[in-house]
C-alpha cells in the first residue's frame, strides 16, 4: 500500500470525526443561543454526565455488533434483565440479615458479578444462534430480546424492583474525585473497547470479518468464534449499562429504557459505524453521543415533550442516513 493511500485513509476517517465535532459545536452553539441562562450551567452538564454513560455504553455495544454486519436488538432487554436479577438477589439475601458495611459490599460485588454474568450468558446465547445456527442477527436478537424482557417480567411480575443497597446507588449516583461515577465507568469502558478493537487480534479480526466475511474465512480467520465473542462482549456491555441504569434510578423494571434501542442505533450510525460491517470507532460514537445528549438536554430545557424528543431522535437518524449517503457518493 502506498503512502498516499494510507494518508487518504486516515484523512477519510478524520474527516468523519471532524464532521462530528462540527455537528457537536453547532448543537452546543444552537442550544446555548436558545436557552442562554439555563443551558450553560454547571448543573446541566453535570446531570448530562450522569445520564449519558448508560446510553453511551449501549451505543458502543451496538457498534460492536454492527462491526461484523450484525445488529443486537436485545441490548435493552439484557440491560434490564441484568439490573432486575441483581435486584432480586439483593431482596433475597439482604432482607433479614445484619447490614454491616462489609457484608453490603460483598453482596454488591456479588450482585455486579451476577448482572455481568447474565449479560455474558445472554450474549453467548445470541452469538450461538447467530454464528452456529446461522440465524440472521435481526431475527435472533429480536427473539432473544423478547425472551430476556419476558424473563424480566416473570421475575418482577410487572412492577419495578426497588431498594438496592448503598453500594449500588454509588455506581449510579456517586462521585469519584468530583466526577460522576457512571462517567468514570464510561471512560474506562470506552477506553478498554477502543484498545480492544484497534490493538488486539480480536478487534482487527472483527473489522476484517465485517469488511469481507468470505475473504476473512479464506484467510483462515475463525469467523464463527470471533462473532460469538463479539456478541458476548455486546451482552457484557449491555449488562454494564443495566447496572448503571438501575444504580442511577435505584430501581429496575422490565420496560425501562425502551427508547434506548433506537437511540443506541442512532448514535452508533451517527458515530460513523457502518451497519453493513467493517467500520466503527469508539471515538466517533463518543462524540456522536455528546452531540445528541446536548441536543436532547437542550430540548428538555425548552420544555419539549418526550414524544417530540423521540421524533427529533428519529428525524436525526433519517437525516444522518441521507447525509452519509451523499458523502459516500462523493467519493
Amino acid at each position: 500500500m502506498s503512502d498516499s493511500s494510507i494518508a487518504k485513509r486516515i484523512l477519510g476517517q478524520d474527516r468523519n470525526i471532524l464532521q462530528l465535532i462540527a455537528i457537536t459545536i453547532l448543537v452546543f452553539a444552537l442550544m446555548s443561543w436558545l436557552n442562554p441562562d439555563k443551558f450553560l450551567r454547571y448543573y446541566n452538564f453535570e446531570s448530562i454526565t450522569y445520564i449519558m454513560p448508560e446510553l453511551g455504553i449501549l451505543a458502543i455495544a451496538m457498534m460492536i455488533a454492527m462491526l461484523t454486519g450484525g445488529i443486537d436488538l436485545s441490548v435493552v432487554g439484557i440491560a434490564n434483565l441484568a439490573g432486575i436479577l441483581a435486584g432480586v438477589f439483593f431482596h433475597s439475601v439482604i432482607v433479614g440479615t445484619d447490614q454491616s458495611t462489609g457484608m453490603i459490599l460483598l453482596y454488591t460485588g456479588l450482585g455486579i458479578l451476577m448482572a455481568l454474568g447474565i449479560g455474558l450468558l445472554a450474549g453467548l446465547l445470541n452469538g450461538f444462534l447467530i454464528s452456529k445456527l446461522r440465524i440472521t442477527p435481526i431475527l435472533a436478537t429480536l427473539g432473544t430480546g423478547q425472551i430476556f424482557t419476558g424473563l424480566a417480567v416473570v421475575l418482577t411480575g410487572g412492577p419495578a424492583i426497588t431498594g438496592f443497597p448503598d453500594g449500588w446507588n454509588f455506581i449510579g449516583n456517586g462521585k469519584i474525585i468530583g466526577v460522576a461515577t457512571p462517567f468514570v465507568l464510561f471512560v474506562i469502558v470506552a477506553g478498554a473497547v477502543a484498545v480492544l478493537l484497534t490493538r488486539t487480534t480480536f478487534g482487527v479480526n472483527l473489522m476484517l470479518i465485517g469488511t469481507n466475511p468470505k475473504a476473512a474465512v479464506f484467510a483462515g480467520l475463525r469467523k464463527d468464534r470471533m462473532i460469538l465473542y463479539s456478541y458476548m462482549l455486546t451482552g457484557l456491555l449491555a449488562a454494564v449499562a443495566g447496572v448503571i441504569l438501575s444504580g442511577r434510578t435505584n430501581a429496575a423494571k422490565s420496560d425501562y429504557g425502551a427508547s434506548y434501542l433506537l437511540q443506541a442505533v442512532l448514535i452508533a450510525v451517527l458515530g460513523g459505524t457502518n451497519p453493513a460491517g467493517g467500520k466503527g470507532r469508539v471515538l466517533g460514537v463518543s462524540i456522536a453521543l455528546i452531540a445528541l445528549m446536548l441536543l436532547s438536554s437542550g430540548f428538555q430545557i425548552l420544555r419539549f415533550s418526550n414524544h417530540l424528543i423521540d421524533f427529533i431522535w428519529g428525524g436525526f437518524l433519517l437525516i444522518v442516513i441521507a447525509l452519509n449517503a451523499f458523502r459516500n457518493t462523493d467519493r
Partner: peptide, 14 residues
C-alpha cells in the same frame, strides 16, 4: 426504526 419513531413522536407530541 427511524420513520416509526418520527411518526409516533409526531402523533403523540402534536
Amino acid at each position: 426504526l427511524g420513520t416509526g419513531s418520527v411518526v409516533r413522536g409526531l402523533l403523540l407530541g402534536l
